[in-house]
């Protein structure tokens, strides 16, 4: 039995955001998608933009994001979130529109839509959850799977000759004049979660400036398909993902405003 501590004379300093529906998310224990969902919803609550925010869910593990996020949402076909978001934003330029996409969705089947939304400088926020694997379909190779990383479709490890290189999307979209703010973050330690939230907040607020696309890559885990405990997966992320996908700011054209 754990201990019980009296809450008398105590202030509540942190609680689950009200913008997250009272639903248990279907994610595996320890999955970074949960943290990413929570952060986006905290921002929507804190900025007071629930009535003006439209989210676009991908096809991937986060396909059911609309069951958890208490905002109006659309579920896009696999890879097409950026095009769907473009359709919404063009019709409602004063709304906050974001996509939430995995690496297969954003950087394989949907690369074209992603690049062109960024290149047009659509005033949307792209939340990109890079877990180096196809989570939903059971752990196949993703465009971001690391060299040597084992997945069900590269069972002896990704080999460059056969499968090419893991794609670095933040670096890529930062090159496009249409993007205004690009940052790569992670959510595997408390300090990084705080940083991720700052970046996401900035990304959402940047939509008000109407100066281009904001792109936040969240390097995340997939304990189930990496076949690790959540704690191990977060360590593996540190040791293997981050050297190839360095965290940090790739572009910031809004801070000077």
């Amino acid at each position: 039995m754990g201990i019980t501590v009296s809450l008398e004379n105590m202030d509540k300093i942190y609680e689950r955001p009200k913008t997250l529906k009272d639903q248990v998310m279907h994610y595996c224990p320890g999955c970074g998608h949960g943290v990413a969902h929570r952060l986006v919803m905290e921002i929507v609550a804190e900025l007071g933009i629930q009535e003006k925010t439209i989210g676009i869910a991908p096809v991937g593990c986060s396909v059911f994001a609309y069951y958890y996020m208490d905002i109006d949402m659309q579920e896009a076909a696999h890879g097409r979130a950026c095009a769907v978001a473009t359709g919404v934003k063009r019709m409602m330029p004063d709304h906050y529109v974001f996509t939430y996409q995995g690496d297969g969705d954003l950087a394989a089947i949907g690369t074209n839509e992603t690049i062109h939304a960024c290149n047009r400088g659509e005033n949307i926020t792209i939340v990109f959850v890079n877990n180096a694997v196809y989570g939903m379909t059971g752990g196949q190779m993703a465009p971001t799977t690391l060299i040597g990383q084992i997945t069900t479709t590269c069972p002896s490890g990704r080999e460059q000759v056969a499968n090419g290189y893991p794609i670095r999307m933040s670096e890529l979209v930062a090159q496009l004049p249409g993007t205004t703010y690009v940052e790569r973050v992670a959510v595997n330690t408390p300090a990084r979660v705080r940083k991720a939230k700052k970046a996401l907040t900035k990304a959402f607020k940047s939509q008000e400036l109407k100066k281009g696309t904001s792109f936040i890559e969240i390097v995340s885990n997939c304990p189930s398909n990496w076949k690790m405990t959540p704690v191990e997966s977060n360590k593996w992320l540190d040791e293997n993902m981050l050297p190839y996908y360095p965290l940090g700011l790739y572009k910031d054209e809004i801070s000077g405003e």
Binding site: I54, I56, Q74, A76, A77, R80, A83, V84, A85, T86, G87, V88, K89, R90, M91, M92, N112, E113, H116
Partner: peptide, 23 residues
Amino acid sequence: VFLQAESELAAINMLYGAAGAGF
């Protein structure tokens, strides 16, 4: 609103988004 999409794939999905927003 007029927008030249990057492909018909994008165009139809833009339509999905815009129609989904009730336009």
